[in-house]
Structure formats: C-alpha cells, structure tokens
Design a protein around this nucleic acid. Structure first.
Lengths: 204, 204, 204, 204
DNA sequence: CATGAATGAGCGTTCATTCAT
DNA sequence: TATGAATGAACGCTCATTCAT
C-alpha cells in the first residue's frame, strides 16, 4: 500500500498523540517536570502508562514534545501578527503588547523548561532545543529593531543586545508573575515599554 | 563564669555548618535540586549523611539555607556599595554595573531556585522566601529611582514598575547566560542600561 | 459480551494477592510487625518490592489485610460451627473447645496485632479494626450466654461481662502459650471451663 | 577505700540511674518500645544520649531494666498484702481485687512487654525474663488455691491450671482495657470473680 | 495497538550506637 | 562522668520503564 494520504489508522494515531501531548502539557505545567509522573499524564490522557511509551521514548521525550508543540502554537501566532505590521515602530509595539499578553502562558512554559533544565544531570546535553528557540526569537526582534534603525524610525542602537534585553525582561517578568501572583504585569509592561521604546524612537 | 563568647565547641559547629553549606551550594549548583542527592552533598562535605541531618532538618531546609547564605554574601555587598553613592544617578549606574557582574552567580542561584520551585508539589507554599527577597530588592531599587525623581535627576516615572522591570531584565539575562554560555552579558547590559537609564535622566 | 465472571486477568490478580497475603502472614508472624521488612515479604512471596505496593498501599495496609484475612478464615469457621449447635449449653462448650484449639493460631494473631499496636505512633487511631473484631465476637458470646439464661440453661448472670472475661482468658492464655511453649493449653482450658461453665449451668 | 556504705559518688550514680529508669518507663509506656527513641528517654530524663549509654548497655537493656523495676514495685506490694491475709478465701478475693486495681498499670506493662517481644528478631532469646515472672506469680496463685483445697475452703481442683487461667484473664482484660478505653473493668471483674471464685468455694 | 501488572534501582530520612572532648 | 556531634546501615516507598498478554 503506497497511498500518500494518511490512512485512517495514521490519523487515529496522530490524534492519540495529540491527546497525550495535551494531557502532558497540562500535567507538566501544573506540577513541573520532576513532580509530574508518567502515570499522571496517562491518567489525564485517559490511556494506560504503557501507551505513553508506544508514542514516546521516555518521559524526557514526552516533555520536550509537549513543550515544543505548545511553544509553536503560542509563539508563531504572535510573531505572525507582529510581522504583518507595516512599520518597525508598529511591529515593536505589537511585539511588546503581545509579550505582555503572552507572559502568563509563555512564562509558564519558560519556567517549566527551566525547572527541567536546572535539575538535569547533564545540562550540556539536556534541552539544547530551548536555547535554539531563544536565538530564533531574538533574531526576529533584532531584525525589527534594525529595520527601525534603517528606516530612521529608531536611533542607531545595538539591535542584537537590545533584542536580548527585551526578551530577558519579559521572561523575567513572566517568572516573577508566577512567583508573585499579585504582580500587575500590564502596568509594569506599560511603564517599561514606554520608557525603553519611546527612547528608541527618534523624536518626531 | 558565663562566657558570652562562643566556645570552641560552638565555633567548630559553626565551621562544620559552613562547610556543609558550601558543599551543598556547590552540589546543588552543579546538579540542581532534584538531580542532587543528599549523599552527594555529604560526600562533597566530607561527612556522613547522618551529619547533614544533624545540622539541617531536610534536603529542602539544606537547600534553602545554602541558597540564602550565598545570596546574602552576594547581594548585600553590592547593595551596600550602591547605597553609599552620593546621588541617585550614581546609585543607579552602580546598581546596573553590580548586577552586570553578579548576573552569572546570581542567575545561577535564580535558576537553582526555579528548578526547585517549578517542581514543588505545592508551589503556593514552597519557597516563599525567594519572592520575599525579590520584593526587598525591588523596594531598594524603587527607592533609588524615586530619590532620583525627587532630586530632579530623573523624569517622573512609575518607579515601582521600572524597578521590577530592571530586576526582571537582569534575572532573565542571567538565565540566558546560563543557557547560552557564549552570550556577551556585559555588552548587552551596556546597551540596555544606556538606553533605559539615559532615558530616565532629565536632559542636562 | 459483558462477562460478569472474573476474567483470567482478574483471577490471576486475585491469586497474586493471596500469594502475597500468605507470605506476609508468614513473615509477620515469624518476626513481628517492626522486625519484618517489606523486602522480606517480597522475597517470601517471590515478587519484587514494587509489586507489593501495586497490591497494597503501605506496610501497614499489608499488615492489616494479612491479619484480617487470616482472622476471618480462622474465626468464622469456628463461630459457624458453634452457632449451629442446638442448645446454648452445647454452644458454650463448643465455643470453649473451639477457642482451645484456636488459641495457638489466634493468639499468634493477637500477639502480632499487639506488637504492632503497642508501638503505634498514634494508638488511638491505629488498628481500630481489631477492637471492632473483639466487640463483634464478644457480642456473639454474650448472645449465647443470654440465650442460655432465657432458656433456663444458665443462671441469671451479667452475660456481657462474662463474655468479655471468656475472650480475655483465652486471649491471655494464647499469649502465654506463645511465651511458654511448654504450657499445656488443653489441660488449662479444661480445668478453667469446667469450673466456670459448670457454675453457669443450673443444677439439673 | 573499703567502706561498705555507699559513697556519695555511688549514691549519686544510683539516683541518676533511677532518674533515667523513671524517664524510660514513662516514655516506653507512652510510645511502646519501637516507637520510643533513646533520645526521647534522654530528653525526658534531662540527660544527653551519651549518658544513657553510660548507665545501660543498649536500648534493650534499658527497656528491660525499666520494665522490671516497675513490675517489682507494682507486684510485690500487692502480693505482699494478699499473702498477709489469714485464710485462702480472703487471699483469693484480695488477689482478684488487687489485679482488678492493677489491671491498668500492670496491663500497660504487659502490653509494653508484648509489643517489644512480638517484634523481637529472636524471640527465643528475647525477654525470657518476663515468662519467668509469670511462672513466679502463677506459683503464688496456685499456692493459694492449693492452700484453700487443703484447708477445705475450696473444692478439689487443678490449682495450677486455674492459676494460669486467672492470670490470663486479668492480663487479657488489661489488654482489652488498653484497646477499648470505655470498657468497665471493675464490672467485668466482679461478674467474673463472683462466678468463678464462688464456684471454687465449697457450699457453706 | 493497548493494557496494566511487574520490576528494581534509587531516594530521603531515622536512630541506636560510638567517641573525641 | 557527661556531652553532643558523628556515624552508617537500614528502611519504607516511588516511579520510569518493560513486557506478557
């Protein structure tokens, strides 16, 4: 049988995978990597433990797959919207507003990853995929800033460094928000962005 | 004769405690909370496992004590230096320079804490001590900014929010530095601070 | 087809459970609750330690299940036989003869329980199941005596109190038998019962 | 120095021993042998753990010493009073009344011993001293009954067996009392003794 | 494909005992 | 004598992973 279109079997399998992935994300987010058990995930997904191991090689594999799939859904969407803006200035503000809204979920993912990574026996190997994602996003942000510089919308700055700073700030704030639920993220973000980005912009 | 000065016994005990604390910090930093075993710490300290429990109630207790003692050594010193500056402007720059230098170590501690916290069975209760530290530091930074506003060194701003942002940025950068060893922290910090703080300052 | 009868899987599981229970009873009886290890039970049952925890929640749970299952096997049978007798007098004698024969095994169980209970951190809560059993048996015995009183076979007595005494005597003797293997239980029981029960009976 | 009278040093030592013994009895009675720690005893006695080991070889040694000293104080006294009675009949009733009153404390000791013995790795060796005590007491009780038989106060019976039964009953009741705090020991004892002992007595 | 029973290495913690001071 | 710090073997229990069915 050489049909290219996915068979019913394959579709079912894919669905199962997604179902497990969703359960895994939920459980891992709630409990963190180490406190979450494979059996928790299995229960949440409504399958047996054994089934998990049919679709994923290990708890780590499952974790990575879950976090990556969530990240893609979240980030791509925002970035897509941002990049559709006409001017660099609009893109920048869109980015900041986007991160502001995403901080909760994105930060959750970041914390989730950190909790995993920070207790990895071999950090050098563990979770190289997340830094790669970071660099990707940094490049996008840096690109926007550079575009602004080129078009004269922004003062000439070290775009790369500022991109890192911007991501770092929102990641840090997301962590704080998780730690201190009363934190007013929007207020802080507004104060920060108005100070930082306004300064980037050349005086009209 | 009631000697107020610590006896030799007590001095030895204190030394032992510090010795264990140092070993714990080393091991926890290397492996993270969950991957590190109490027996690792005991071995690193050159004592038996039982001895650990003579000085500390639990692995968690040991962890907290290790992080806090390291934190105090690191932070207090910097903050002390910073607060000795004459003007708010000098304090702010001092702060940023200090965090720049500390980011590596401080960030390691932050990651360490997150790795612990993120997988805590009850996050609401676990590790409340770290958020408390955050708030403390935030207050100091906010105080500096407010002082600057009062003395006319800075534009009128939401000091609290900017303080949070500043801490978040350096925490985030510290995390990135741990994840991406090649990151040029100093360059990023300079670009960031020059943009952000310069904007705070009223034009001379 | 919804089979009501247990599947092969379920049968196997039940067998495994019994196998573990039997091993647990053996090991606990030999060593007592505190001196016996879960690994001992596992070894005796020919399974791994982990398997024990698949079937039972804890060492305590296993202990309780083992004692209760043994108790039921032992006691119910005797009680059944006893209650089938026609007259109260016959029932009483049957009971005493039954306890006489059971004392060795029953007493072993009682000792086993005491060894567990006596060192329980919270005696008020621990092992409430055993007292419940006691009360159950006391009620049966008291019922027999009362029946005898009603039918005129026995003198009017405090049935409840005598029932407690009867159980206490045989429990005590069982303990002694465990402590002093040379004790002639049958002889003691005969002397005791002939004195006590004969007195209960109204002179023909 | 060959003084026969205890030196002050020796007196102090003896006092310390008693102080520890008292603390040990209290702690062991409260928690049972296995749940009680040597450090608990040390704390209750107001000495360090090390000191315990100066006076006693091991936890077991301490336990045995504590239980024996308590037993002697309790039992000898009652037995003394009992044996001072003029007639066997009076002695028997005195014994029963004494055991009735002692059941609480004596039973506590018996339970304490059982809890220890039942979980002894090697029961054959452990705690041979208690059975010896039992036999001693049994002999006293049997002696009283025999005396009654000789003087014609009692019917001719198997004194030995009845002595065992009597002890067993009160030991059993004591255990029940510990297990079921609401049990009315006095009422049960009265009902029991009036039935059993009255039967022993020859009709006046 | 899916199940769930079975595994066993590994962990944090306790505590009787020892020993330098 | 007395202290209390130090030891280390031992325990109950967990959980990622495997495998017969």
């Amino acid at each position: 049988m050489e049909d290219v279109a996915p068979t019913k079997r394959e579709q079912q399998k894919e669905e199962r995978r997604k179902q497990i992935l969703a359960a895994a994300l939920k459980v891992f987010t709630e409990k963190g990597f180490h406190a979450a058990n494979v059996s928790d995930v299995a229960a949440a997904a409504g399958v047996s433990q054994g089934t998990i191991y049919w679709y994923f090689d290990s708890k780590e594999d499952l974790f990575q797959a879950a976090i990556l799939s969530a990240f893609e859904e979240l980030g791509q969407e925002t970035m897509g919207t941002v990049l559709m803006q006409a001017t660099a200035r609009e893109k920048l503000w869109g980015l900041v507003r986007g991160m502001e809204g995403l901080a909760g979920q994105m930060g959750g993912l970041f914390m989730l990853f950190l909790g995993y990574w920070a207790s990895s026996p071999d950090r050098a190997k563990a979770g190289q995929w997340w830094p790669n994602l970071l660099v990707e996003y940094k490049d996008v942000v840096a690109g926007i800033i550079e575009e602004g510089v080129k078009t004269g919308e922004c003062r000439p700055v070290d775009a790369e460094s500022l991109a890192w700073s911007l991501l770092a700030t929102y990641n840090g704030l997301a962590a704080y928000a998780a730690l201190l639920p009363d934190l007013d993220l929007v207020r802080i973000s507004r104060a920060f962005s108005e100070t930082l980005i306004k300064d980037l912009e050349v005086d009209a």
